[in-house]
Amino acid sequence: MKHIYLCDNSIDGIFTAIYQAWASRYGHTNIKIEEKSEGSSYSNMELFAEYIPVITEPSLAKKVAKSIKEKISAETFEMVCRVALSDFEGKADLIYRFLILGFAAGCGITEQISNVVVNRMFRINKNVNNEAHHLLGFIRFSEQSNGLLISVIHPRNNVLTIVTPHFADRLPNEKFMIYDENRKLAAFHIPGNSWVIAQVPELERKTLEEFPAYEDEYRALWQTFFEHIAIKERINPRLQRGNLPLRFRGDMTEFHNVR
């Protein structure tokens, strides 16, 4: 019989499930780990399988993290974390399969990129990194009357933890908030303190709509600049779309009601 571990969709949740699955001694082939999918309730249950709910335990997750760092490598640990932040369905089981290989092969595992499991990890890792890198450029802050900088984003992957340190380093004297509306997560930075990420379910759409409504002169200046920097003779919407996919544009100042 198949044993399916159902865990939280978080790094700690996935690591806890991996610990418990490993300790259960059911055998790797009889085990599957599934993360609770984002948003909607779980509806895709399998027949002839035993579902084991996993309660996230940070102490167990810490043990798994420690083993990855010591028995494989710190670099691999970062890669696993980034995959755990992705929106790929089945990432928990993928990480489990990857770690089975990794604990056997040691730090050389990241070089075996022709292996199907390692290759998939590698690609998802790259995808998360790419989106994070895109957002370093595509995030737009708008200033509130009290000087707070606010940015709303809708990323596919949970990249807030990856992008926030960059902005904290770049804008050390600014109060800012980056809000991931898809996950209701927000990163806060206050000068002199380190940044934090918090779940903010109570941040209503209504409160949010007041943010972009605040107009300052620099928004208009930026839109002017954006409009005039394009060379008319070279207009190429396909190239523009390839470089800047439409899904990012909703959150970008220069695409808001350009005159």
């Binding site: 890198h133 450029g137 595509f138 394009a230 070279r234 207009i235 190429n236 523009q240 470089n243 220069e254």
Partner: peptide, 10 residues
């Protein structure tokens, strides 16, 4: 870091 792409795709 690219911050945006103008209508000519640059």
């Amino acid at each position: 870091i690219c911050h945006t792409f103008s209508a000519d795709g640059r």
